Amino acid sequence: MVVQDGAEPFGLGSLVEVWGEPEHPEDGTPVFDFQVCTPRPGRVPGRSDYDLYVERGLDATADADLVCLSPKYDFLRHDPAVLDAVRSAYDRGAIIYAHCSGVFELGAAGLLDGRECTTHWRYTDLLAERYPEARVRPDVLYCHDGSVITGAGSAAGIDASLHLMREQFGAKVAAATARRIVVPPHRDGGQAQFIARAVPDCDAETLGPLLQWIVENLADDLSVESLARRSHMSERTFARRFRAETGTTPHSWVTRQRVQAAEELLERTDHSIDWIADEVGFGNAATLRHHFARVRGLSPQQYRRRFAG
């Protein structure tokens, strides 16, 4: 974790919550060699009535598998030593994760050219203006393009971290991590290299009870017609209300819940792909494989080999 003068405390804390926790045997989650470093070890001035004291220099990034850039207030000034460290880490294959205003550091390092990226909604226009070769997405929580992850700001740092946790360690570990920090489990959607938004939890304004019912009855008929009838609405009104409250269509939301359930069954059981497809509502293995590959970028069999047990 790279911190600099003017470190923004909430953005830093959201990353520490996921990657910096000590062992919790009851969770069964991995423990990381988490280190905080800075260009000039010692006192790191803050802007929230307290400072940080950091003992490690940027040499700590030399062999890290994941290098995180914490957001800072003075984000248009870049330390050449930080840019060099980020480029070196990227060139040797490390995962680079910049959150909120830290994304501007990646632009200055030349790592956003041709890449899907995002930052806090206040700064997306500025990011696009300063780095015109970047493909800035202002309407998403985070982007994952190759080995670079960019987060939109504040609590989206947790969403992006849980996405990466799920990708590297599977659904069970990501869910246990989310439970420990008391947030809804992250569920990825969109394409494998670009996550459009985290699927919302079931606390929608008026559709919350229905969303919870869907999650508990994935094998049922969950067509728009059926769900609209259950909600006592016309199909058109239901579809409009659903998008307004969840940010996506009923079909997309249901599909992502089914993929999520399939992930957990692939990890926890040795049931056949056909059995899992029927259990989560896809009906047959071919349909499960299609949706699973579109969302996760790998087949159910590959996912099971990687994460089962």
Rank of each mutant, 00 (worst) to 15 (best):
R289I: 06
V259F: 01
Q4M: 13
E225D: 12
M233E: 15
Q193A: 15
P184G: 11
Y123T: 08
A155V: 15
A94F: 08
A64V: 14
E55M: 06
D125L: 06
E205M: 14
W253F: 15
A228I: 01
V82P: 04
V259Y: 03
H271T: 09
H271E: 14
V31T: 15
E17N: 10
E263Y: 03
D27F: 08
L222Y: 06
R77L: 08
V199E: 03
V86G: 09
A308L: 00
L76F: 03
L12D: 07
I158T: 05
L164V: 14
A228G: 14
F10P: 00
S252A: 12
T246V: 14
D91I: 06
Q257L: 10
T29L: 13
A94Y: 11
S70W: 04
E116S: 10
F307W: 10
R43S: 10
F34K: 12
A285K: 06
F194Q: 09
P22T: 13
C202R: 13
R306F: 06
H163L: 02
R243D: 14
R56T: 00
A60E: 11
Y142G: 01
D74F: 08
D270G: 14
A81N: 04
P25Y: 05
G28Y: 11
A277Q: 05
A81C: 05
A175K: 09
A262L: 00
A109E: 10
L164Q: 08
Y131K: 05
T118K: 03
A262F: 07
A174G: 05
A62C: 07
R115V: 14
D79W: 00
R240C: 07
D63W: 00
A128M: 09
A62D: 15
S48V: 05
T287N: 09
E245H: 09
R77Y: 02
E235G: 11
A192Y: 14
T38H: 07
L112P: 05
D27Q: 12
D79H: 08
